[in-house]
Measured scan of single mutants.
Amino acid sequence: MRKLSDELLIESYFKATEMNLNRDFIELIENEIKRRSLGHIISV
């Protein structure tokens, strides 16, 4: 996760939620978004 750019991480989050991927996977992405202080972009 740390090698993904912020932009790609956010894009991955939206794609994963759109495709209804595994909730655990989405939570991993959400946690990384929060760690990077980007939660305001997706309202996490």
Rank of each mutant, 00 (worst) to 15 (best):
M1R: 02
M1G: 02
M1D: 02
M1C: 12
M1T: 05
M1H: 05
M1Q: 03
M1F: 05
M1L: 15
M1W: 04
R2S: 15
R2A: 15
R2C: 07
R2P: 04
R2M: 14
R2E: 14
R2H: 13
R2N: 09
R2Q: 15
R2F: 06
K3D: 15
K3V: 09
K3L: 06
K3I: 06
K3R: 05
L4W: 15
L4A: 04
L4P: 01
L4Q: 04
L4G: 02
L4E: 02
L4M: 14
L4T: 03
L4H: 03
L4S: 03
L4C: 07
L4V: 06
L4F: 08
S5Y: 03
S5C: 05
S5D: 06
S5G: 05
S5L: 04
S5V: 04
S5R: 03
S5A: 06
S5I: 05
D6C: 04
D6T: 08
D6W: 05
D6F: 05
D6Y: 07
D6H: 04
D6G: 02
D6R: 03
E7L: 10
E7N: 08
E7Q: 12
E7S: 11
E7T: 08
E7I: 10
E7V: 10
L8H: 10
L8K: 12
L8F: 10
L8Q: 14
L8Y: 09
L8T: 11
L8W: 09
L8N: 11
L8S: 12
L9H: 00
L9D: 00
L9V: 03
L9M: 02
L9N: 00
L9G: 01
L9E: 00
L9Q: 01
L9R: 01
L9W: 01
L9F: 02
I10C: 04
I10Q: 02
I10R: 02
I10N: 01
I10V: 07
I10H: 02
I10Y: 03
I10K: 03
I10A: 03
I10L: 12
I10M: 07
I10P: 00
E11T: 06
E11L: 12
E11S: 06
E11I: 09
E11Q: 11
E11P: 01
E11F: 08
E11R: 08
E11H: 08
E11G: 04
E11D: 09
E11W: 11
S12H: 13
S12K: 07
S12I: 15
S12A: 15
S12F: 15
S12Y: 15
S12P: 00
S12N: 08
Y13S: 00
Y13R: 01
Y13E: 00
Y13C: 02
Y13D: 00
Y13K: 01
Y13L: 04
Y13V: 01
Y13W: 15
Y13Q: 01
F14V: 10
F14R: 10
F14W: 12
F14S: 04
F14G: 04
F14T: 07
F14C: 06
K15W: 15
K15E: 10
K15A: 13
K15L: 14
K15S: 12
K15C: 14
K15T: 11
K15M: 13
K15D: 08
A16V: 05
A16Y: 08
A16T: 04
A16G: 05
A16K: 03
A16C: 05
A16H: 06
A16Q: 04
A16E: 10
A16R: 04
T17S: 09
T17A: 10
T17M: 15
T17V: 15
T17G: 08
T17P: 04
T17Q: 14
T17C: 07
T17N: 11
E18G: 08
E18C: 09
E18Y: 05
E18L: 06
E18F: 05
E18N: 07
E18Q: 10
E18T: 04
E18W: 05
E18D: 11
E18M: 07
E18P: 01
M19P: 02
M19R: 09
M19L: 12
M19V: 08
M19Q: 13
M19E: 14
M19I: 10
M19G: 12
N20F: 07
N20L: 09
N20C: 08
N20A: 09
N20K: 07
N20H: 11
N20Q: 11
N20W: 06
N20I: 05
L21P: 05
L21G: 09
L21D: 11
L21K: 08
L21R: 07
L21S: 12
L21I: 10
L21A: 14
N22P: 15
N22R: 08
N22A: 14
N22M: 09
N22H: 12
N22D: 15
N22K: 07
N22Y: 06
R23H: 15
R23E: 10
R23D: 10
R23I: 13
R23P: 13
R23Q: 12
R23C: 07
R23L: 14
R23N: 12
D24W: 14
D24K: 10
D24V: 11
D24Q: 12
D24C: 07
D24L: 11
D24I: 11
F25A: 07
F25M: 12
F25Y: 14
F25I: 12
F25H: 06
F25D: 06
F25K: 04
F25N: 04
F25T: 08
F25Q: 07
I26G: 01
I26K: 03
I26Y: 03
I26H: 02
I26T: 03
I26N: 01
I26V: 09
E27R: 11
E27Q: 13
E27K: 13
E27N: 10
E27F: 09
E27C: 06
E27Y: 08
E27G: 07
E27D: 11
L28F: 05
L28C: 05
L28P: 04
L28A: 14
L28T: 07
L28Q: 10
L28V: 11
L28H: 04
L28D: 06
L28S: 07
L28I: 11
L28G: 04
I29E: 00
I29S: 01
I29Q: 01
I29D: 00
I29F: 09
I29K: 00
I29R: 00
I29H: 03
I29A: 02
I29V: 05
I29Y: 07
E30C: 08
E30L: 14
E30H: 09
E30V: 15
E30P: 00
E30A: 13
E30Y: 13
E30F: 14
E30G: 06
E30Q: 08
N31Y: 08
N31P: 01
N31D: 10
N31R: 12
N31L: 14
N31I: 12
N31G: 08
N31V: 10
N31S: 12
N31Q: 14
N31E: 13
N31M: 13
E32P: 00
E32H: 02
E32F: 02
E32Q: 01
E32T: 01
E32V: 02
E32K: 00
E32Y: 01
E32C: 01
E32L: 02
E32I: 02
I33Q: 00
I33M: 13
I33W: 01
I33A: 02
I33Y: 01
I33D: 00
I33R: 00
I33H: 00
I33F: 03
I33L: 15
I33K: 00
I33G: 00
K34H: 12
K34P: 00
K34Q: 10
K34I: 12
K34V: 09
K34N: 12
K34T: 09
K34M: 12
K34C: 06
K34L: 12
K34Y: 10
R35E: 05
R35I: 06
R35Y: 05
R35Q: 05
R35L: 07
R35W: 03
R35T: 04
R35N: 07
R36H: 01
R36P: 00
R36K: 00
R36A: 00
R36N: 00
R36S: 00
R36W: 01
R36G: 00
R36T: 01
S37R: 13
S37I: 05
S37T: 06
S37E: 12
S37V: 06
S37W: 07
S37K: 14
S37H: 14
L38A: 02
L38W: 01
L38H: 02
L38E: 02
L38G: 02
L38D: 02
L38I: 06
L38V: 03
L38M: 08
L38Y: 02
G39C: 11
G39P: 05
G39F: 10
G39Q: 11
G39L: 09
G39S: 11
G39A: 09
G39V: 08
G39H: 11
H40A: 09
H40I: 06
H40F: 09
H40L: 06
H40E: 08
H40R: 06
H40K: 07
H40S: 07
H40V: 06
I41M: 15
I41C: 07
I41L: 15
I41Y: 09
I41H: 09
I41W: 09
I41K: 10
I41R: 09
I41G: 04
I41E: 08
I41T: 07
I42P: 03
I42L: 08
I42K: 04
I42R: 03
I42W: 01
I42Q: 03
I42G: 03
I42E: 03
I42S: 04
S43D: 13
S43F: 05
S43Q: 14
S43E: 14
S43W: 02
S43I: 14
S43R: 13
S43V: 13
S43L: 11
S43H: 13
V44T: 14
V44G: 13
V44M: 14
V44C: 07
V44A: 15
V44W: 08
V44P: 10
V44Y: 06
V44K: 14
